[in-house]
Design a protein around this nucleic acid. Structure first.
Lengths: 214, 214
DNA sequence: TTAAAAAAGGGGAAAATCACCCTTTCAACT
DNA sequence: AGTTGAAAGGGTGATTTTCCCCTTTTTTAA
């Protein structure tokens, strides 16, 4: 019986090669190619064609997992892909699953569970671990409470990023070419939306939600 | 010829098992055991004895890589260990090397370089990649400029952590059981030491240097 | 054992932050 | 044409942050 084909998209070369070793030791699977990031992946499938399953890392340079997933949804909506990341933030998980990922695995899972996940995705079309399911349930609970989807506008995001520096609001106003009073308005409305009560709260929010990288 | 023995200390089970697959495919190495964290490792060697080389992850629960390295330096100063991490912050690298790590590998290295590193550590006693060497050189440059090694005391660290919350200084003073004026002293001396000019600067420093986890 | 450090705290003031309530303008519905 | 709503901006005052200079007490080191 022919082995199912797997492609790995991950910039951690040692991990990718190691995982290849592991996958190749499974009876039913083999790795057909590896790409360092989404960009390389989109190019590689031109020559190599699509694999049965893509294992997709989230944090990658140039074209990350979310962007790659968007591209897949656009171009090959039927393609089976499993997100594979250390990042267990609810937002990322939801984003990936919404974009059509068939599962979301954390890199600390048991290899046997990993093989089960591959089987499930092929046979049932999806695999959701308990941990991910719980994360999602937590999220639903939260949504019930908050309700107000916290969507930030471009200008607010720009302000938030600047608030995560040592600039004073006056300096931020100059950079953004707005009156200090307008900046004060942004500040107040963000305090409200993000449920914080000080600039420190803004900074913590900005970092936690990856508006700035450190 | 007998294979050299390797132990992997890493909480990412999938990575650990994958790496085991890879290492076992090398001619001269085999993985003898795996531990989820430093604590488990110290217990495991009671039964299994020491391996030729330990591959040591930095970020682990319970007992992390730095703590494990400290323990090794104390109990088995001759043991060869290589740090293996995604964390390329200079501080961590220096800390590990000072504690006697024979090398510091980033998880995105090429598997062939990885094998070279294992060989070098056995034969020459150490392996330093270009990237790590450059990091260290950068650090030396910086030290020449700054000079003042930025060592924080326990009380300062406690204050810094609290400053990375939404508490006001007055509130921090209450939880630390000190007068607001004393807190103001801590603030000012930290501004000076850390070369920041606002509370936002403290928060950014605290996060960048991992005094708080997010 | 004495001098020199930290550590703890105080006074006072300028600057920044935060809160609340308000007006104008301009675009978008319907 | 009228309403709604957002983006931009204003006024005022309370609170917090930041700065600079100073005293007392405790620890540390020579």
């Amino acid at each position: 019986m022919k082995k199912h084909t797997i492609a790995i998209v991950d910039d951690h070369l040692l991990f990718a090669k190691s995982l290849t070793s592991l996958v190749d030791s499974f009876d039913d699977y083999r790795v057909v190619f590896h790409a360092n990031n989404g960009k390389v992946f989109t190019e590689t499938i031109q020559e190599n064609g699509l694999p049965d399953i893509i294992l997709l890392d989230i944090n990658m340079p140039i074209m990350n997992g979310v962007e790659t997933m968007e591209w897949l949804k656009e171009n090959y909506p039927e393609q089976k892909a499993i997100a594979l990341s250390m990042d267990d933030s609810e937002e990322t998980i939801i984003k990936m699953l919404r974009l059509g990922a068939k599962g979301y695995l954390l890199k600390d899972i048991d290899p046997e569970v990993f093989e089960t996940a591959l089987n499930d995705v092929l046979q049932k079309g999806f695999y959701y671990s308990d941990r991910i399911t719980n994360k999602l349930l937590d999220n639903i609970d939260k949504k019930d409470k908050d309700d107000d989807a916290v969507e930030l506008k471009d200008r607010e995001i720009q302000f938030l990023k600047l608030a995560c520096t040592e600039m004073t609001y006056k300096e931020i106003a100059m950079v953004m070419n707005l009156s200090p009073k307008t900046i004060d308005g942004y500040r107040e409305s963000l305090f409200d939306k993000l449920e914080v009560r000080s600039r420190t709260g803004l900074v913590l929010y900005g970092i936690k939600h990856k508006f700035i990288e450190m």
